[in-house]
Design a protein around this nucleic acid. Structure first.
Length: 226
DNA sequence: GCGACAG
DNA sequence: ATCTTGTCGC
């Protein structure tokens, strides 16, 4: 990866993590600030069922054909507990390692989790986007927060996710009559652009092909090792 | 005080 | 996240 990675210590207390989120949240860019998107990366993490081992996978696909171009994985040990709203401090260390091993610098990264739809407007997608200064989108399977409003049943239907009279993301139905996904800005993309990409990437299933590909790879690596 | 709570 | 078979519905 070409970009200069501005990382920080991950050996933090809960209080320090909260403090860091407040500081880094200032750096999130919520407007479209990206060039032509030729390739898109999907990231996902899997946990070993008995140990505290975690595996992260990054899969880069061609934005037009959706074919896999490159992929990378990294193994790590969970050093931070699972605390809703501090999720990134648990998963990002492994994800970053996997990204560092990539030859290609993704034009866009789709994360498995929230972006701005977060208590301090700094979910995992924002965190990754700011550290790498790369456009990112948060696409979660379930909701963390925000007032939910049921979207129409057709593919492409969406409703805004609201918190404190503020639009923090939106629900997006990626296939007819299936449960919607939760899309929010990660970094350097507008909400409209984020939704458009998630819909375009969700050609046949509920989740975008990027996260499906990363999920498959991560599960494969997990079972091969045991 | 009682829920809710990304993966 | 992970543990897990069949089953209801489009």
């Amino acid at each position: 990866m070409k970009p200069q990675i501005i990382t920080h210590s991950w050996n933090l207390s809960e209080e320090q993590a909260l403090q860091l989120q407040h500081e880094l949240a200032t750096q999130v860019i919520t407007e479209d600030c990206l060039g032509e998107v030729k390739n898109i990366a999907g990231v996902d993490v899997a946990y070993d069922k008995t140990s505290d081992k975690i595996i992260a996978a990054v899969v880069v696909i061609d934005a037009k054909t959706l074919e896999i171009i490159e992929q990378s994985t990294a193994e790590n040990t969970a050093q931070f507990p699972y605390i809703p709203s501090l999720f990134s401090f648990r998963e990002l260390p492994a994800v970053i390692e996997a990204l560092k091993n990539l030859q290609i610098t993704p034009d866009l990264i789709v994360c498995d989790g929230q972006g701005l739809a977060h208590p301090r407007r700094f979910g995992l997608a924002c965190h990754l986007g700011v550290l790498f200064d790369i456009p990112t989108i948060g696409c979660g399977k379930t909701r963390l927060m925000g007032e939910y409003c049921e979207p129409e049943k057709n593919r492409g239907a969406m409703t805004p996710l609201i918190d404190n009279h503020e639009i923090i993301g939106c629900t997006l139905r990626t296939q007819d009559s299936i449960k919607p996904v939760y899309v929010s800005i990660g970094n350097r993309v507008s909400l409209a652009t984020a939704c458009a990409w998630i819909l375009k990437l969700s050609t046949k299933y509920r989740l975008p092909e990027t996260t499906r590909a990363a999920d498959h790879l991560v599960r494969q690596k997990l079972t091969i090792k045991g």
